[in-house]
């Protein structure tokens, strides 16, 4: 195994969480090592988004422990090292794309980034109109801006929730390349998606969730060897659960 893959970046151990009195996830355990791109897959209501919310400290876990970049819980200092693209969020509509990224870069500023240069590069790369108000953006453009902000500042951990929703095919291909580039540079990526063919091409490992629990975690290579594709592996595991 590559030396860079030995450091644990994220570890969930027996985590359960509730929405009110409804149990959303139960005894969820999985681990991400440095440089891994892990796909989180499951049907609607499987607990993918809830797991992401719990690990990012948006929902208090009822039981279990979370270790993220060596810390036991998310703090504002930790968020400097994490990029997150939620599924349906809209950035502040009174800002332009450039203003929004500049605003975020003030908080994420690290030694490894040159904010102005990186922001301009991101605006071009994600094909964003820099001076147009977010209010006037299409759904796809908003989505691209959400993704751009997640990559800003070269975070150690990037969490993407259904990143392909609303993206055109060209942007999907570009995003795939960017994820591979970040993976090579040692960034850890947790990627929740429905599109299993895409996950097969992008991820090194997958975590399969079903009815609030993790039912399987393995490398994409092993799953393809065993079942022929991630899609078939998913069907088999869900069928058996």
């Amino acid at each position: 195994m590559n030396q860079s893959l030995t450091d644990t970046v994220l570890k969930l151990t027996n985590v359960s969480a509730y929405y009110g009195f409804t149990k959303a996830i139960e005894s969820v355990s999985f681990e991400l090592k440095k440089g891994q791109v892990v796909g989180l897959i499951g049907a609607n209501g499987a607990g993918k988004t809830t797991s992401l919310k719990v690990l990012l400290g948006m929902l208090k876990p009822a039981t279990g422990t979370i270790s993220i970049l060596g810390m036991s819980r998310c703090s504002s200092r930790l968020f400097k090292r994490i990029g997150f693209a939620p599924e349906d969020a809209t950035p502040p509509e009174y800002l332009t794309a450039r203003e929004y990224l500049v605003f975020l870069s003030k908080f994420r500023k690290g030694e490894n980034i040159n904010s102005v240069q990186q922001i301009e590069e991101f605006l071009t790369w994600f094909e964003l109109d820099p001076d147009k108000l977010v209010r006037k953006y299409s759904k796809g453009m908003r989505r691209r801006l959400i993704l751009a902000q997640a990559f800003l500042g070269k975070p150690d951990l990037i969490v993407l929730d259904e990143p392909l929703n609303g993206l055109d095919p060209m942007m999907i291909l570009k995003l795939r390349d960017r994820l591979k580039l970040y993976q090579k540079q040692g960034t850890t990526i947790l990627y929740s998606s429905h599109i299993l063919t895409e996950l097969e091409q992008t991820c090194s490992d997958v975590v399969i969730m079903h009815r609030g629990s993790v039912i399987h975690q393995d490398s994409v290579e092993n799953l393809v060897k065993q079942f022929g594709s991630v899609e078939k592996a998913f069907s088999a595991k869900i069928g058996a659960a």
Binding site: L56, R77, F79, K80, P86, P91, P92
Partner: peptide, 19 residues
Amino acid sequence: PYAHRGERSLLTHVLPVSK
């Protein structure tokens, strides 16, 4: 409450700034 309502709250939550 603008930045803390709906899905926007998730983006606000991960801002590296003390609540």
